[in-house]
């Protein structure tokens, strides 16, 4: 069975890159445009792993991660954060919100897939 990835990113460019990369690697991809939409589609999408951006309108990545962790069913789902630099402060905040790991942008397909494989069975 294909693994399902939920990606949350407000940039159409990044969403498309994620989509292409993940589909090529054999994942099923569900996409949301911000944290609010991400939480809305969460139950429906029932993903195996989540990849989320930090800077987003309405609800940012930190809020989104906290929201996911509050959900009984998804409180232990792997969540990877997309960050632009290896910004220590941001990484820390994401971790404290409950992020599992991170991917530094601009990601290359190998980095992305490696990180996902590292956190999913």
């Amino acid at each position: 069975m294909k693994k399902k990835v939920l990606t949350v990113d407000d940039s159409r460019t990044i969403r498309n890159m994620l989509l292409v990369t993940l589909n090529n690697a054999g994942f099923e991809t569900i996409q949301a445009e911000d944290g609010v939409e991400g939480l809305e589609v969460l139950e429906d999408a029932n993903p195996d792993v989540i990849v989320t951006d930090i800077n987003m309108p309405r609800l940012d990545g930190f809020g989104f991660i906290e929201g996911v962790r509050k959900n009984e069913k998804y409180r232990a789902i792997p969540i990877l954060v997309l960050t632009t630099e290896s910004d220590a402060e941001k990484k820390n905040r994401a971790r404290q919100a409950g992020a599992t790991g991170w991917i530094v942008k601009p990601f290359d397909p190998t980095k992305l897939i490696d990180a996902i494989e590292r956190v999913t069975a």
């Binding site: 460019t13 990044i14 800077n55 987003m56 309108p57 632009t84 942008k105 601009p106 990601f107």
Partner: peptide, 19 residues
């Protein structure tokens, strides 16, 4: 301010992907 920041941030993010 956030929206302004995000706009630049988004452009940077995408531009990075295309080098």
């Amino acid at each position: 301010v956030n929206a302004v920041f995000r706009a630049v941030h988004s452009i940077k993010g995408g531009a990075g992907a295309f080098a």
